[in-house]
Amino acid sequence: MTEARVSVLTTGGTIASRPDPEGGVRVAVRGGELAASAGATRVREVMLAHSFNLTPADALRIVSAVLAELADPDVDGVVVTHGTDTMEETAYLVDLVLDDERPVVFTGAQRHASAPDADGPGNLADAVRVAAAPEARSLGALVVMGGRIHAARYATKAHTLALDAFASPGHGPVGRVTEDRVEVTSRPSRPPGFRPAELGDLDARVDIIPAYLGADGVQIAACRAAGARGLVLQALGTGNPTPGVLREVRACVAERIPVLVASRCFDGPSLPVYGAGGGADLAEAGAVFAGPLQAPKARLLLSAALSAAPDPAAAIRRIAPHLR
């Protein structure tokens, strides 16, 4: 059997960080050094940055780098090392444009590279195993951390410090890595996505607005004034607003600014259940419920859709399969 050929793209993050003499932990490990013992066929350093500093343009650079690797028919899979803070968003963006059965696996670390118990090397080795595994084909973009394999559509960072920081609320991991064995236990739903050219600069402004006790909607009004083309409401419970938020959502819909409703709860879908000023009134006003998507992914999806289909109604039709 021919040995699988895996490309590793490095972008920075904790996995590539060391303590700085001036304080804090900073990205410092170049791509070649990071992946030297990972078993990759080739290594390409895309950038060297903390993921909390990334912009949409940076995320698109990573998408382009992934697609460039997959343009080589001799590549069997791609691994991307990435900071964990926004890994779920970049991985989801890749998943939205990935029209290829070969796996794209994101991984990172919770402990910096100089820590005596650094988890980066093990995570990277696991990610390379998954990228090379025939079982991982057609799963789309994946996140591999702490021995668990998560679908990008479901993955979210659930703990600030734990080594198994990622979870897939409502779904669970799609597989696991045990020593040298890759086991896939389920296959994620992957609705039709986007062509890379449709995303342009991914510059359709979409803001996330949290709901909380007494929220008066002033943030929504400010975002509307700042030119937001779409909004994601991180609503209460099953998808409920406060009175002030409901009033401002109605104003947005009247101005043809689409509003997606996610829940601030960690698990469970957003659904228009309650009247008397609740989620059912949001739906009646014209807001669209994001179902299983958490707010960061709902925001990215709506931004992609508005870049691809500037008409709000067309954008909502485009993303409807992703909200079920």
Rank of each mutant, 00 (worst) to 15 (best):
G108N: 03
H112G: 11
V128R: 03
R129V: 10
E89L: 04
E101S: 15
P116Q: 09
G122L: 12
V128T: 05
V94H: 00
L98V: 11
D95G: 02
A127D: 02
D117V: 15
V128A: 04
A125H: 10
V97P: 03
D95H: 00
A127N: 01
A127C: 06
L124P: 02
A118K: 04
L98I: 11
A113D: 12
F106S: 03
T90K: 01
D126A: 10
L93G: 02
Q110C: 11
Y92S: 05
S114I: 12
S114Y: 13
V105Q: 00
A115N: 15
D126L: 05
V97C: 12
D95V: 00
L124K: 00
E89Q: 08
A91R: 00
P116E: 08
A115H: 15
G122E: 12
D100E: 11
V94Q: 00
T107A: 09
T90H: 04
A113G: 11
S114Q: 15
A113L: 13
P116Y: 08
A127K: 01
L96G: 03
A118I: 08
D100N: 10
D126S: 09
R102P: 09
Q110E: 14
T107W: 06
Q110M: 15
D95P: 00
P103A: 07
A113F: 14
L93C: 07
P116G: 11
P121G: 05
V97R: 05
Y92I: 07
P121N: 05
P121F: 03
T90F: 01
F106C: 05
